[in-house]
Amino acid sequence: MRRDLMEILVCPVCRGDLELEVFEENEREILTGRLTCRSCGEVYPIEEGIPNMLPPELRERR
């Protein structure tokens, strides 16, 4: 995901703001990272450049 996507992502559970941690990034986009809700503390992974904004109960299916 590109960094400017952060402007429109919120926690799907409580609509809180998200804090971004980047683990891996290239010149275009964030490849691996983590979004943490500042309100409820839920964590959303970024994998293969794609943020996973599913609430925990929907996240496990592959």
């Binding site: 590109r2 996507l5 992502l9 799907p12 609509r15 794609i50 904004m53 599913l54 609430p55 299916r61």
Partner: peptide, 27 residues
């Protein structure tokens, strides 16, 4: 909601988010 679908969309150059409908998108 499907991880294979968002990967397919991203591979076509489309910004993609795995989400239940629009939940998690604030715009």
């Amino acid at each position: 909601i499907n991880p294979h679908a968002v990967r397919a969309a991203a591979s076509l150059g489309i910004p993609a988010v795995r989400a239940d409908l629009f939940h998690g998108i604030n715009s």
